[in-house]
């Protein structure tokens, strides 16, 4: 039995928005793989919950007429893994979603929850950052779009107004067309793991395949929230896509990341890993992008 003060269930987005206005203190629960555990731990014990798990309209992956990929916020990790659209256009997101916890966690956990909880170690968060994703929120005033980078306000805090729920994650055509990516999760075991550090890299090479036309690098657990390595990205865009650049990236990301000491890993070890992961993820993303052209 969970220590829950009251449970309000929404089956439509409008219902959820009204419930949010009626019960401003209530916590939103999607799949619950985060909220229910926090209730067990006592951190969210005795609170009112608004369950949005029954809102089927925000579940599933689709493509809009302008080529934007829409991932409904309640889409589970397992459905992201198996989605043909994801596989075709942003395969690395499916790979990252496939590394979350274990199979049963991937069946219940939602991509919306993975971003709304504001956690830096979330496997899909750094990958969505690398895809320049846009967060869609619905509230009493209507729909609002927020670039994912500004959606994160701080550790465990996201830009969700008191009357809003997240309804979708959008990835625009220009953000994915021609790109290839790779995500590396660093954990202490190969499943049932929260990332000690994570790195997601997307590249788009020049038409001749020799130079970097676009580069996006994102990290998890390299700062209190998932971050982009903007300095490194601008420094190496236009440069040759080779081993020397990979070494350069390994070096320059150290100016972008700000990991901390914790009992899970030291700052120094995380810095070392960020550097090594950026190098490896970059090289693999380049290899995939070249392969795609063949």
């Amino acid at each position: 039995m969970y220590d829950i003060k009251a449970l309000y269930e929404a089956t439509t987005v409008d219902e959820a928005v009204s419930l949010r206005q009626e019960h401003p203190e209530a916590v939103i629960i999607a799949g619950g793989s985060d909220v229910l555990i926090k209730i067990r731990e006592g951190k969210l014990a005795g609170r009112e919950l608004i369950s949005i798990y029954g809102i089927d309209s925000i579940r599933g992956v689709s493509m809009e007429h302008d080529g934007t990929l829409r991932i409904g916020s309640l889409t589970s990790f397992s459905h992201i893994v198996s989605s043909p659209l994801i596989r075709e256009h942003i395969a690395v997101l499916g790979e990252a979603a496939g590394m979350v916890g274990g199979p049963q966690i991937r069946a219940i956990g939602t991509i919306g929850g993975n971003t709304c909880n504001g956690v830096t170690s979330a496997d899909t968060a750094s990958t969505l950052l690398a895809w320049d994703a846009v967060i869609e929120l619905a509230g009493a005033e209507g729909v609002r779009h927020v670039p994912i980078e500004s959606f994160y306000l701080g550790a465990g805090r996201a830009d969700i107004h008191s009357d809003e729920i997240q309804t979708g994650i959008l990835i625009r055509r220009e953000a994915y067309e021609g790109f290839s990516g790779h995500y590396i999760k660093y954990g202490m075991r190969n499943a049932m793991e929260i990332a000690t550090a994570g790195c997601s890299v997307n590249v788009k090479l020049s038409p001749d395949g020799n130079n970097i036309e676009r580069l996006r690098i994102a990290f998890g657990v390299a700062a209190p929230v998932p971050i982009r390595a903007h300095k490194t990205e601008s420094q190496w865009t236009g440069k040759p896509a080779d081993d020397e650049t990979a070494e350069g990236i390994a070096c320059s990301v150290l100016d972008d990341v700000k990991p901390r000491d914790s009992w899970r890993a030291s700052r120094d070890m995380r810095l070392h890993l960020c550097s090594e992961m950026a190098k490896r993820a970059f090289l693999e993303a380049v290899r995939r992008n070249k392969e795609r052209r063949v």
Binding site: G32, S33, I108
Partner: peptide, 27 residues
């Protein structure tokens, strides 16, 4: 464990395997 870490409570729901400990009964 009752927090979705061990898998001992797993059941099949509509063809997918879930940890029933972190699945609200009302769902």
């Amino acid at each position: 464990c009752e927090v979705g870490e061990c898998g001992a409570c797993a059941v099949i729901i509509d063809g997918e395997c879930f940890n029933s400990c972190i699945y609200l009964a009302v769902w």
